[in-house]
Amino acid sequence: MPELYYSKAVNEALDEELARDPAVVLIGEDIGLYGGAFGVTKGLFAKYGPERIWETPISENSFTGLAVGAAMLGVRPVVEIMFMDFIALALDQLLNSAGKLHYMYGGQVKVPMVLRTPGGAKGGYGPSHSQMLSNLLVGIPGLKVIAPSTAAQAKGILKSAIRDPNPVIVIENKRLYPQKGEVPDDDDFTLPLDRAVVASPGTDLSLFCYSSMTPVCVAVKNAFLQTGVNIEVVDLVSLQPLDTETLFASLRKTGRAVIVEEACLTGGVGAELSALFAEHCLDSLDAPIVRVAAKDVPIPSSLALEKLVLPQPEDIITAVKENLAY
């Protein structure tokens, strides 16, 4: 299997879907010759031209709404929001249009659009360019929210998202773009949008994570193996809906849950998952659930300060030890 950078895997997914379906168009800022702020769309403008790759003025709410309107009439737009923080500018059209239209118009319309955006901090981008805002999106009915953590997921999930008849938000990650992973060499390789994945099986404790935290959790698991503790790493992949079947099965097996995410602690995916575990798996818990997340503050620019706000491997190790010691 060939190894690809995460960013190249996204690029290949876009390339293949543009080639497969003439209804697919890309919409976003600087996605043409420039290739997007993170180079994800590099080469696509040269290959598909301005008929398929639509470079927009800096007008996030309107080009997201434009994608909604176009999708209702059969176009399949893939929108890029340059930094996830900028999704605030498009939130009205996501919340009030994309997520609601199919339901509120009584099933008369479909909104088959994808919105891709890189979340997370990558070292010094500062408060307006660094947040993981998964917690903002999972509370909006009608949106599917997926956060691929590997190159294979990045490709397989994006292709499924583009083929899905619903609005799908794909949260990419700036820190994952330069990471490499094996990706099946198959134009029709897709992955389901609603399944969690056991990234590394284990027996003693479950680490639940997504996006940038998955490779960090796998590294933590490997470090613990030397001490005789076998951790299971479960990658949520889909944040809305949550694949409770896979998540509950892991917890029921290990009896211990540590939840790790790059988003803020309060009111997010980890909080939701904790509540679900408490509601449905209380008898299986051998220890209180521990959550590891970003502190409830904006992401500071200084690298030294940023590190103090974001979850670090040591924080996960401490949480695991705390849970095991209970």
């Binding site: 309107s62 709404g65 434009l66 909604v68 176009a70 209702m72 009439l73 059209q93 009030n96």
Partner: peptide, 12 residues
């Protein structure tokens, strides 16, 4: 809210 949606319809 309808203005960008209509613009998208025109795009389609």
């Amino acid at each position: 809210g309808g203005i960008p949606i209509a613009t998208g319809a025109a795009f389609a």
